[in-house]
Amino acid sequence: MSAPLLVLDRVRKVYTSGRVVRRPTFTLDADLSLNEPGIVGVVGPNGAGKTTLFEMMTGSNAPTSGRVLVGGTDIHAVKYRERDRLAIHYHQSYQVRRFRKRVPSVLLAPSPTATPLVHLFDEPQFNLQDGYIGFMLDFFRKLAGEGRLVILCMHPTASWHLDILAEIAGRFLFVAGGGVTPVADFRSLVAEPRFRLYLGPEMTQAADTIGHGAA
């Protein structure tokens, strides 16, 4: 039996501040397993930790505790330049954050895979020109069909963003309140009170309409 594509094993990230006494300013906890290929939507308020979550999944930001396993391999134990052979993070601004390398790369293991098992898209910019959105959705489906796990983070500000999430994602992760909550489907996501509060009245009404159509 093959290993799950992505496991966050009691992962915790804590940011602190203070020169003498270090006090926590932000904490994110995640304990979950995504076993099979598919497309997962990630949503949550600004500042909730979605990008931090992506960075831990792809090995550019070390968790304070816990492990991130991609295909059974601890990505933070893999050579820095080879981590994107396990999981790759596509950021909307195409910027890559740099973190202090605590362990020399020579002491780390090579990646067991040549191409990524997990593809993370962090708020991609969907061009509204004819055919572009369809092209992107087909690309996500193609990756999933090839046995990859696609994780798509979106910040819905228009009803068509919700349409995309309802159409493309089979399951969801809701990031809020210092935690990551797995959600089975779009209708369950829309029923989540914290998600409705995050969307606001107008967008919640649009989500309800789309959710009923997705039944």
Rank of each mutant, 00 (worst) to 15 (best):
R10S: 10
V11G: 09
R12M: 04
R12K: 11
K13C: 07
K13W: 05
K13F: 13
V14W: 00
T16R: 15
T16Q: 14
T16W: 01
S17N: 03
G18K: 13
G18T: 11
V20I: 14
V20E: 02
R22A: 15
R23V: 08
R23K: 13
P24C: 11
F26S: 04
F26L: 06
F26K: 03
T27W: 00
L28V: 07
D29I: 03
D29T: 13
A30M: 01
A30V: 05
D31E: 12
D31I: 08
D31G: 09
L32H: 13
L32S: 10
L34E: 07
L34Y: 12
N35P: 03
P37K: 13
P37Q: 11
G38C: 01
I39G: 11
V40D: 01
V40G: 12
G41L: 07
V42W: 14
V42H: 14
V42C: 11
V42S: 12
V42M: 10
V43L: 14
V43Y: 10
V43P: 14
G44T: 12
P45E: 04
P45W: 07
P45L: 03
G47N: 02
G49F: 07
G49A: 05
K50V: 04
T51W: 08
T52L: 04
F54H: 06
F54Q: 03
F54R: 00
E55A: 08
M56Y: 11
M56L: 07
M56H: 10
M56F: 10
M56K: 09
M57Y: 05
T58S: 10
T58C: 13
G59P: 11
G59T: 10
S60C: 07
N61M: 12
N61Q: 15
A62R: 15
A62C: 06
P63Y: 11
P63A: 06
P63V: 07
T64G: 14
T64S: 15
T64R: 14
S65H: 03
G66L: 09
G66Q: 10
V68Y: 02
L69R: 10
L69I: 04
L69Y: 08
V70I: 13
G71M: 01
G71L: 01
G71N: 04
G72C: 05
G72L: 03
G72Q: 05
T73R: 07
D74L: 04
I75L: 08
H76V: 04
H76C: 05
H76G: 09
A77C: 01
V78T: 03
K79T: 04
K79D: 03
K79Y: 02
Y80A: 08
Y80N: 04
R81E: 09
R81K: 06
E82P: 05
E82Y: 06
R83P: 01
R83M: 01
D84R: 14
R85P: 02
R85K: 12
R85G: 01
L86G: 06
A87R: 03
I88C: 02
I88Q: 03
I88D: 00
H89I: 00
H89F: 11
Y90A: 06
Y90F: 15
Y90N: 00
H91T: 14
Q92M: 01
Y94R: 15
V96A: 12
R97D: 06
R98T: 15
F99T: 15
F99D: 08
F99H: 15
F99L: 04
